[in-house]
Computed example of a mutant assay.
Amino acid sequence: MTGTDHNNPLQPSSAADSDHDAEQKAQRHQQRQQKLKEKVDERIAAATRDKGLLLVITGNGKGKSTAGFGMVCRTVGHGMRAAVAQFIKGSWACGERDLLQQHGVAFAVMATGFTWETQNRALDMAAAQAVWQQAKQYLQDPAIHLVLLDELTYMLTYDYIALEEVLDALTTRPQGQHVVITGRGCHRSLIELADTVSEVQSVKHAFDAGIRVQQGVDW
């Protein structure tokens, strides 16, 4: 049998009915999007303050430092100054550092490597303090638009840097300066102080399957 089966309730009775259904769907979609737009516009209109933000990126998933460096790149892309203090990381190559130093980004690096490699608390603490002293200078410079404190959370967990000293440096920094802190297990005091907190969770990681870290992806 060819043509329209008028005894089949599942088949549209005509092309006009199909067009009508499509038009109704389009109208409902437009109405939903208009309501969404109104809500977004309300929130944008209500956000009237400007301030230097403290952002925390924590959690056990991959990508915390990468996200922090993304904000450094964004800052530099807008022609503003940024500085980075890298805790934990060693003297091995860092793609972000190699690139950003070419664009005037200042770096202070704790070049002793990971604590499970050095196994020397006194050495690690001295290295952490040296980087922290430089970081404090960044946090006092109003010409620096954004400071990334990469893996700072570990320094507080290990008591290499005093929490009170960090909180003081953050609360007394220039008014318009933004700060990004990355690392697992962020101290609750930093989370409470922060304006924005993101938690990166691990679902799968290639390293757990025996795959080596990959240049350009992991470092």
Results as ranks from 00 to 15, higher is better:
Ala82Phe: 01
Gly90Ser: 09
Glu96Tyr: 09
Lys37Tyr: 00
Glu38Ile: 09
Thr48Tyr: 09
Leu36His: 10
Val56Lys: 03
Asn60Val: 08
Lys39Phe: 04
Trp92Ser: 12
Ala47Asn: 14
Gln31Thr: 13
Ser65Cys: 08
Ala47Ser: 15
Ala67Val: 13
Cys73Thr: 06
Gln33Trp: 02
Glu38Arg: 14
Ala46Arg: 14
Phe87Tyr: 10
Ala22Met: 09
Gly61Gln: 02
Val76Ala: 06
Gln34Val: 04
Val56Trp: 00
Ala93Trp: 12
Lys35His: 13
Arg81Ser: 11
Asp50Phe: 10
Ile57Gln: 09
Ile44Leu: 15
His20Phe: 07
Lys62Ile: 07
Ala85Glu: 05
Asp21Trp: 04
Cys94Pro: 06
Gly63Arg: 01
His20Gly: 02
Leu100Asp: 03
Val56Met: 07
Met71Cys: 02
Thr48Gly: 01
Gln34Arg: 10
Val40Ile: 15
Asp41Ser: 14
Met80Leu: 15
Arg49Pro: 00
Arg49Met: 09
Gly90Leu: 11
Asp98Thr: 11
Arg32Lys: 14
Ser91Leu: 09
Asp50Gly: 08
Glu38Leu: 03
Gln30Pro: 00
Asp41Val: 09
Gly52Asp: 07
Cys73Gln: 10
His78Arg: 13
Lys39Pro: 00
Glu42Lys: 15
Gly95Asn: 11
Arg97Lys: 12
Leu100Ser: 06
Val72Leu: 05
His78Asn: 15
Arg81Trp: 02
Val72Pro: 07
Cys94Lys: 01
Ala46Cys: 00
Thr58Asp: 04
Glu96Gln: 09
Gln86Asp: 02
Arg81Val: 02
Leu99Arg: 14
Val56Gln: 04
Gly68Pro: 11
Arg97Glu: 15
Met80Gln: 13
Gly63His: 07
Ile57Thr: 12
Lys39Asn: 13
Asp98Tyr: 04
Arg49Gln: 13
Ala93Tyr: 14
Gln24Pro: 00
Leu99Trp: 08
Val40Glu: 12
Val76Phe: 06
Asp98Trp: 01
Ala93Asp: 15
Cys94Gln: 10
Phe87Cys: 04
Ala83Leu: 02
Gly61Glu: 01
Arg28Asn: 11
Lys35Tyr: 00
Ala85Lys: 05
Asp41Trp: 07
Ser65Asp: 08
Val72Cys: 00
Gly95Met: 04
Leu55Ile: 15
Ile88Cys: 05
Lys39Met: 13
Ala83Phe: 03
Leu36Ala: 14
Leu55His: 12
Ala45Arg: 03
Gln34Pro: 05
Lys35Ile: 06
Gln27Ser: 13
Trp92Ile: 12
Phe69Thr: 01
Lys51Glu: 04
Arg43Asp: 11
Gln31Tyr: 04
Leu36Ser: 09
Val72Tyr: 01
Val84Gln: 07
Gln33Ala: 07
Trp92Lys: 13
Phe87Ala: 00
Ser65His: 03
His29Cys: 11
Gly52Ile: 05
Gly61Pro: 08
Gly90Pro: 01
Thr75Ser: 03
Leu54Ala: 06
Thr75His: 05
Ala82Pro: 01
Leu99Cys: 13
Ala46Thr: 05
Thr75Ile: 04
Met71Ser: 11
Ala82Met: 00
Ala83Tyr: 01
Leu54Met: 07
His78Phe: 12
Val84Arg: 01
Gln34Gly: 00
Glu96Asp: 09
Gly77Gln: 07
